[in-house]
Amino acid sequence: MIYIMPLFILIVIIVGFAKNVPCFDSFVKGAQEGVSTIVKLVPSLIGLIVAVGVFRNSGIMDIVISKTMPILEKIGMDSEVLPLMLIRPVSGSASLATLRDIVSSSGPDSLTARTACVMMGSTETIFYTMAVYTEKAKIRKLPGVLTAALAANIISAISACIICQFI
């Protein structure tokens, strides 16, 4: 798995070279977009990371987690990742803040942190996607989409917990 990133970059540069792309110029242009995406995100991340921190350290999170632990463990889920599962469909930046909180509090190489990372990578902010994609077409009724997406979220949370134990 360590090879994926370097190999991918190598292939990309070879393809770019073969297609006569000015690789470094393209790279800089793309990287610029990346920088401005993150910079634009900073204000919302400040607000959200503070909110997540306040919520966690108020002590209420421990109560919620200890109450839900028995139920969630029965279906094979880690209760630490519950906040991420709840916030993920709603907002990308809020789930980024939540993921940071989980990863830094339980250690980046812990099972909990890896599970949370996999969940983050395998789900989508479906509320946002639905709202933005359908706005222009003015479609109001989307039968079944939300049910399917949210149920799939739960399934991905459970399977992330299971799969991360083995890989």
Partner: peptide, 21 residues
Amino acid sequence: SIGLIGVVALWCGVIKILEDA
């Protein structure tokens, strides 16, 4: 957030090469 810039920008740059190709 500042710490994220490095990897995210690197990745966007690499993908841009692919896009331009």
